[in-house]
């Protein structure tokens, strides 16, 4: 069996993005289970000591492409390099971050290689498969697991016959874990003329403004999250008040973001951020699968909902039946009275 590849994104500071390190952490486990090696593809410019950055995650081979025009990312040269490298190396599995870059690049690569691709996986596992019609057996496939169809179902997707099996995963879904601080792999510098062509640079970046992340819900220990049931911006202000008083961040479900109640950067769930806080207070959130996928590993969950049958209540440690507008001010009041 051939190896597992992770496309590593590099940020403005020459550092590999968290989402890529998370994928390496998961990739190493999958590779070990399959008894194959893990290789990283790193494309950019002025990348900070890549060997020191990646080897601790158990990367056996780093394929490095460095050139001025390769950062910031544009689709065509990165796609050419990845496609041509994959044609040579024929990876078994390839993982990309489900970011602005990964979601632009992975489909282009999958199309060129005529391979299957599953977006926004919430879990990756190894498993077998028997084809119903032909009874053909497939051993050690990548199970690409994601909520589908409005989040009412969980689908397990496989690519039995095409390689690589490609998946994208959002930031925060996989846990960041160092494999071994003393691990050493090897570095291969790619000879660029072989992999890309002049035409790949026809798209020019004229301007670029990237902001440092202002809202850090991924790292928050306490999250007060609101859904469509919060109803109004005024009620959302109560969430901010509670979060401030108890030292947390405000999150939201997609429904609340779509309704314009709150900024997209705060969205938690399959198409937002995945969080694992010690306390998650879900206000007016019904709890569709996509939302739960982003928060169900929270240590303690409180659901505030006027619907006793809301699905989120089933995973909550505490369920308060009532209106967000009544309950939050009381929580703020009693917290202030009882904390020292």
């Amino acid at each position: 069996m051939n190896n597992l590849f992770v496309y590593c994104e590099v940020n403005e500071d020459g550092l590999v993005a968290d989402v890529s390190l998370e994928l390496l952490s998961k990739g190493k486990k999958l590779a070990n289970e399959l008894k194959i090696k893990m290789e990283a593809v790193v494309i950019g410019n002025e990348i900070h000591d890549i060997e020191a950055q990646l080897y601790p995650y158990g990367v056996d081979v780093i394929h490095l492409a460095q050139e001025k025009r390769l950062f910031p990312y544009t689709t065509l040269p990165h796609a050419s390099i990845v496609v041509n490298l994959f044609k040579e190396e024929k990876p078994e599995i390839a993982l990309f971050g489900a970011t602005s870059v990964g979601r632009d690049l992975a489909p282009r690569v999958a199309s060129a290689l005529r391979c299957g691709l599953t977006a926004d996986c919430t879990s990756l596992e190894i498993g077998n498969h028997t084809e119903n019609k032909t009874q053909k057996e497939y051993i050690n496939l990548l199970y690409q697991i994601r909520p589908a169809f409005g989040g009412n179902i969980i689908a397990t997707i496989i690519n039995p016959d095409t390689r690589p099996q490609i998946a994208t995963v959002r930031e925060g879904v996989m846990k960041l874990e160092i494999f071994s601080k003393s691990f050493k792999g090897k570095l291969k510098n790619l000879s660029l003329d072989k992999y890309m062509k002049e035409d790949d640079f026809m798209v020019e970046i004229l301007e670029r403004h990237i902001e440092k992340q202002k809202i850090n819900i991924k790292g928050a220990q306490i999250i007060v999250a609101g859904g469509y049931g919060v109803g109004t911006k005024e009620n959302f202000a109560l969430l901010h008040q509670l979060a401030e008083v108890i030292g947390g961040e405000v999150g939201a479900s997609r429904a609340a973001v779509d309704a314009g109640l709150v900024d997209h950067a705060r969205q938690i769930g399959q198409t937002g951020v995945t969080v694992r806080p010690k306390l998650y207070i879900a206000c007016g959130i019904s709890g569709a699968v996509q939302h739960r996928a982003g928060m169900d590993q929270s240590a303690k969950i409180i659901s505030i909902n006027n619907d006793p049958k809301a699905p989120i209540n089933k995973i909550a440690d505490y369920t308060i039946i009532g209106n967000v507008g009544d309950i939050l001010p009381k929580m703020i009041k009693f917290y202030k009275e009882n904390s020292k």
């Binding site: 299957g116 397990t156 690519n159 016959d161 699905p311 089933k314 909550a316 369920t319 308060i320 009532g322």
Partner: peptide, 27 residues
């Protein structure tokens, strides 16, 4: 190339949830 191996309806196991009202003493 992608095949759906399995579709699961999401059936939640009820966790032991503490049910509260909006009364002052509960909060």
């Amino acid at each position: 190339p992608t095949k759906v191996k399995k579709i699961e309806n999401v059936v939640l196991q009820q966790k032991e949830t503490v049910l509260l009202t909006d009364a002052d003493k509960d909060i």
